[in-house]
Computed example of a mutant assay.
Amino acid sequence: MQRHRPVRATAAAVAAFLFLGGCGSATGAPPGPSPEAAAGRAGPAEPLAPAREPSAADTRLLERAEQVLISRCMDRRGFPYAVTEAPDATGRSFPYGVDDVEWARAHGYGGRDERAAARAREADPNQRYFRGLSASGRAAARAALMGSAPVGLSATAPTGMTITASAEGCIADAQRTLYGDLATWFRVKVVTMNLRPVREARVHEDRQYADAVGQWAACMRAAGRPYPDPDASRQAAGRFGENMAPAEADAAEAELAVVEATCATGTPLARVSQALDHTYGERLRARHQEEIALRWRLQNGALPTARRVCAPHGSQEHSTDAHDTAPKPRSSGGSHA
């Protein structure tokens, strides 16, 4: 149920980040230059063809190509690195309170799903490999993957946070191969991937949302669940596991989530939050349309390279057999089917 995730990398790289400690740093900063000024730095001002949003299949191809390129680069630097499939995006986020009764009945607040995701991360072959290295070996692998320090790339997110990362390392090399101008790619990705937390913060600060939460809280009190807002009920559900067995905690969580969703749909909360989310989302997309369009153009331009990288010829990438304790080495330079 996390709302904020400043930087996203490939699925396999994320698994390594979780163990190795992250790829960059973030610092508070005043808002950066306008989208128009930022777009001007990327190239001459001239009419551009309308950008096409990449399809879900295009995005998966780009993510897989990035992983393959990272794997080849790590192999050249002496570190095996497995190309793994991205997890299914089946989770849902309810930043304004759970408002789907059937989903709540089946998933509660997603605690069981989160535990399953944590087990999958724990079983990731790259995680297992890095855990088996010595402290010095992990430091060397981290530097190979993400660079020795988060310097060289910097961008200010719409949240006002400055995000930095290394322009060296295999992640940077892979993205440079796909997108060409690494600094521009980093900037537009930071901007576009941080629109959501800004949108959600504005909804939470809106008086209409506060009024709707008040009506939701009255409904919850009438149902014997006296929580002032959805965050409070979610936190209460998170404490069930402290003194209950997992199955019992899951059942209690689902029961509370169903009450929350029933009150959300039975009061203006669901309708108001969805309308505000749409309104603020449209405003943010209009304000950052240049960065959004530029990201799509870079992604579309990278697709031919991604197809070549993932073409089914040459040797296979590292095995991800669940019984292996580490990625299997292979001949460098091959492509993954």
Rank of each mutant, 00 (worst) to 15 (best):
D113H: 06
A51Y: 05
A120T: 14
R92I: 04
P30T: 15
A89T: 09
A51V: 03
D124V: 03
A37E: 09
P80M: 10
A86N: 04
Q127W: 05
A116P: 01
A118Q: 13
S71W: 01
A143E: 09
R119M: 11
S71V: 03
A144L: 04
R77T: 02
Q127M: 11
R92W: 03
A123W: 14
G108R: 08
A117I: 03
A86M: 12
D99Y: 07
Y96Q: 09
F79I: 15
L69I: 02
A104W: 00
L62D: 01
R72A: 09
A57I: 03
A86I: 10
R72K: 10
S34Q: 02
S71K: 08
F79P: 14
E53K: 12
V101A: 11
A51M: 02
S71Q: 04
R60S: 13
L145T: 05
A39Y: 00
Y96L: 06
A51P: 02
H107L: 02
A118F: 10
N126M: 09
D113R: 13
S93Q: 07
P44S: 15
R119K: 13
A143S: 14
A118L: 10
A38R: 15
P31E: 04
Y81G: 14
D75Y: 00
L61Q: 06
A51L: 06
P80F: 09
R77A: 12
D88A: 15
F79E: 10
E66T: 14
A29G: 00
E66S: 15
F94M: 09
A38H: 06
G132K: 10
P35M: 05
E46T: 15
D113I: 11
E102C: 00
R112N: 06
V68C: 02
T59W: 01
E122C: 00
R142L: 02
D124M: 08
P50W: 00
L48C: 02
G91V: 08
G32D: 10
C73T: 02
F94Y: 12
D99A: 14
P80C: 09
R92Y: 05
L61C: 10
M146E: 08
P33E: 11
C73F: 07
R77M: 03
S71A: 15
S134N: 03
P95N: 05
D75N: 12
A143Y: 01
D88F: 05
A37T: 12
T90A: 11
E85I: 04
E102L: 07
Q67V: 06
L61N: 05
A56N: 03
E66G: 15
I70Y: 10
A82L: 05
A123K: 14
W103D: 11
R138N: 03
P95C: 08
Q67N: 02
A141E: 01
A51D: 01
A89E: 11
R92Q: 09
F130D: 00
R138S: 00
A106C: 01
F79H: 15
R41G: 08
M74I: 06
V68F: 03
A140S: 11
G78R: 06
A42T: 07
R115P: 07
D99I: 13
S93K: 12
R41C: 03
